[in-house]
Amino acid sequence: MNDPANNNVTPLLELRNVTKIYGTGDAQMQALAGVNLSIYPGEFVAVMGPSGSGKSTCMNILGCLDTPTSGSYLFQGIDVGALNRNQRALLRRNYLGFVFQGFNLLNRTSALENVELPLIYRGTDTATRHRLARQALQAVGLSDRENHTPGELSGGQQQRVAIARAIVTGPSLLLADEPTGNLDSARSIEIMQLLTVFNRDQGITVVMVTHEPDMAAYAKRIVHFKDGLIETDHHNGAQN
């Protein structure tokens, strides 16, 4: 289902009849059974669905961590299925940002160094790296915590560091996998507000998996998965 306003724009990402099959023989399990999905620049999409509905598999494919068994995934018109492991890593490095349910920060590493990590892999020079990392920490409201390690930060703060790490490179797409799954409702609202701000002010496309309708309500578009297929795909009237 396309947004009428985006009719003349190329989709940022496009799934064309994507299937994903795990295992072989009797143990075969079809995680995706032919998914078609187009997401346009600037969208904020919530992906919902019960466990085993294929939404995580879909996220892995969108995040270029995995490739479809059949069908194709186009990212900015590039067929990701045709890329090798290193080319997909470069694509992640240059265009994607990840936020995970379990934060996934490096232990015993300061917030600043965590945020710097993607910039190091990009080969950004030291001065620019420090400047961008500090800006990103400031944007998530953690300027005063840059030397704190994850162990010294609360869950909400850790997730904000993770968001800073995801947006520090100015990605085209931010993928968030249950970003509020480990947080209480007050912290969850903070995180959702941050994602909304980055989506609105910096035009970063956000795709977020969530179980909670409250969190999905922040998105402009909600996609429901069921049994490896998209069940419903509608715009969220409450936000628009």
């Binding site: 890593a89 993607p118 892999y121």
Partner: peptide, 16 residues
């Protein structure tokens, strides 16, 4: 393992 996963997800190349 988890740390390596983070690095790879962020875009570290195999050779890096």
């Amino acid at each position: 393992t988890r740390e390596i996963g983070i690095r790879l997800a962020i875009g570290a190349l195999e050779r890096e």
